[in-house]
Design a protein around this nucleic acid. Structure first.
Length: 575
RNA sequence: GGUCCCGUGGUGAAGUGGAGUUCACGCCGGCCUGUCAAGCCGGAGGUCGCGGGUUCGAACCCCGUCGGGACCGCCA
């Protein structure tokens, strides 16, 4: 039907007779005999000069056949790649008429309520922004596949109907018709299957896998999302970093971006310097340890604190008035801090603060030196347990300085040496696993398992991109004896372990190789590479925050007959 | 489960106790031979999300509810 696409024609095509197919983007009328019609497809627009008697309107689907001609005189359009030419002597065939769209099919629809865009997603996707995003996404998927295959990974599909495993995220469950009362679950990830593929001798597995979690939605979370899921045998953490890192770099390049260097930081350093396990390395404002500065302080709020840490919000003193500082203090308290001390550096270098009078001259000078304070700076200090001080200041640091997630230059970072356990369960008194209970402890810390479990590092790691967690992974436990030790620490009896994880762990008795892997969130990666702050912008048909689809109206009630087949009865809504 | 913000012709906004009022875009009709977000003239288009309350009077204040968004919890 067509000889070229709408963004393709240039001066070199002048004189050729061509046919274009697409949608009418705009129509500009100039009297009885002249109108300009812009024809759009996903490659761009081309102007056709038509007789004004031709009745085509916005979003009509047309085929135009005409002669490529240079635009006369002063009428070149520099803002348009096809702006040197136009189609003349045009025959317009209307392939389909169209009603006026509910919003303009151009960048002005960026201002339209997102719910309306989702209700008419097929029109929203017609726009350049969504075309670009979905094509970046396809390029990223393609580059990842190529990279993984080049590195010897084999793509294997794992099932979508899997057994329910109540640990971890809430699952979507699917009723079984043949066995009423029994249910499948949709996979939160292919975790179990990929580890069994290692037992099965696949050696290097990958999949661009759909994962589903019935947890509340966010800007960076949907019910269903895509992961680069990978697992390898006989390898170390560094082998995983190399494999995933190569794929990510290839993905960034495919999106026309540069990944930059992927650095590595330990979990402890990340917490200590940035107050968070997903540090955004694009800006400074690092946490500074002030414990020594106040070692002998007379200020009651600081005296005897396990850790005293501060940040310097450079030049923020004026911007943060009493109301904002009070709100910040409230937030710190909600996060568990006993309080928040703020100090403003005045023009003459003195510290303005309700608590300044409690700090000695020496302490004030030492604080200014430690935080490299300059006039106009806002200093924030928390004295508490090490963890609380870090977390509170890390949150304030992000609130004060974090740029939009998609802004460059990009900073990827591997966060390594996560603790094996995060704290102790209030009820049982047992340590709580930080990642999952199949995570291999750090070999240097094995002797601490029963003595000081909270000090044991794990071989678990995250990949962080501009402060977003892109994914996580670990080297897994492949030795049944070590697994039993971990279950013992967690208070899981051998009988419990067999009942809950037996189908997964029994195969490990038949020769499980050392193995580890990773799961990487593709939606988040693509969103950042596409310059979006929200993964819905890189998903063709996403759901709203309440899990609904305004286009299809899913979820909907189903026919009672269907429920009857499944042996399911729906309870009346709770009063 | 919680906190905060939003809901006004098709779209986006203004209106915050005094008449469904206003602006831009779009739409329909007319004019117009070089526009490119064309221009000019005219016109149509509304359950101010929904329900209740306060008031002489409510788009506006209060309560509830539905929908959308950001975040906390949650996401081993």
């Amino acid at each position: 039907m067509r000889t070229h696409q709408c963004g393709e024609l240039r001066a070199e095509h002048i004189g050729q007779t061509v046919s274009l197919c697409g949608w009418v983007a705009t129509r500009r009328e100039h009297g009885e005999k002249l109108a300009f019609v812009d024809i759009r497809d996903h490659t761009g627009v081309t102007q056709a000069v038509v007789d004004n008697s031709v009745d085509v309107r916005a979003e009509y689907v047309v085929r135009v056949t005409g002669t490529v001609a240079a635009r006369p005189g002063e009428n070149l359009n520099d803002r348009l790649p096809t702006g040197a030419i136009e189609l003349q002597d045009v025959v317009v065939e209307v392939l389909n008429a169209a009603e006026p769209p509910p919003f303009p099919i151009n960048e002005r629809a960026d201002q339209v309520a997102e719910g309306t865009r989702l209700q008419y997603r097929y029109l929203d996707i017609r726009r350049e922004r969504m075309q670009k995003n979905l094509r970046i996404r396809a390029a990223v998927n393609s580059a990842i596949r190529r990279s993984m295959e080049d590195q010897g990974f084999l793509e294997i599909e794992t099932p979508m109907l899997v057994p329910s495993t109540p640990e971890g995220a809430r699952e979507f469950i699917v009723p079984s018709r043949q066995q009423p009362g029994s249910f499948y679950a949709l996979p939160q990830s292919p975790q179990l299957f990929k580890q069994l593929l290692m037992v099965a001798g696949i050696d290097r597995y990958y999949q661009i896998a759909r994962c589903l979690r019935d947890e509340d939605l966010r800007a960076d979370r949907q019910y269903e999302f895509m992961q680069l899921d990978a697992e390898l045998s006989f390898g170390s953490q560094d082998d995983v970093f190399e494999a995933i890192g190569s794929a990510v770099v290839a993905a960034a390049e495919a999106a026309g971006q540069h990944a930059g260097e992927i650095v590595k930081i330990t979990w402890h350093d990340a917490m200590n310097r940035f107050g968070i396990d997903k540090p955004d390395l694009r800006f400074g404002m690092e946490l500074v340890d002030l414990t020594d500065v106040f070692a002998t302080t007379g200020f009651k709020a600081f005296a005897g604190a396990a850790a005293i840490k501060g940040i310097n919000a450079t030049a923020k003193a004026e911007e943060y008035g009493r109301n904002k500082l009070d709100a910040m203090t409230d937030k710190a308290k909600k996060m568990g801090a006993k309080g928040l001390v703020w100090l403003k550096v005045a023009a003459d270098g003195t510290l303005e603060s309700p608590v300044a009078k409690f700090l000695s001259e020496g302490e004030q000078a030492a604080v200014k030196a430690a935080l490299e304070a300059q006039p106009g700076d806002l200093l924030l200090i928390v004295a508490d347990s090490w963890m609380t001080a870090c977390e509170v200041l890390g949150t304030l640091r992000n609130d004060l300085g974090r740029p939009p997630v998609h802004e460059g230059p990009y900073r990827f970072v591997w966060v390594v040496d996560f603790p094996l356990f995060i704290g102790v369960d209030d009820v049982s008194g047992r340590p709580k696993p930080g990642h999952h209970p199949f995570t291999q402890p750090h070999p240097d810390d094995l002797h601490l398992l029963e003595i000081e479990p909270l000090k044991v590092r794990s071989q678990a790691y995250d990949l962080v991109f501009n402060g977003w967690e892109l994914g996580s992974g670990s080297i897994r436990i492949h030795q049944p004896e070590l697994q039993a030790r971990i279950f013992g620490l967690l208070g899981i009896s051998p009988e419990d372990a067999d009942r809950r994880f037996g189908f997964f762990l029994n195969p490990f008795r038949y020769g499980a190789p050392p193995h580890g892997g990773f799961g990487l969130g593709i939606d988040r990666l693509v969103a950042i590479l596409a310059g979006e702050e929200n993964i819905r912008e890189v998903i063709a048909f996403p759901k709203t925050q309440s899990g609904m689809d305004p286009m299809t109206n899913a979820p909907t009630p189903v026919d009672p007959k269907q429920l009857d087949d499944l042996g399911i009865r729906v309870l009346p809504p709770k009063a």
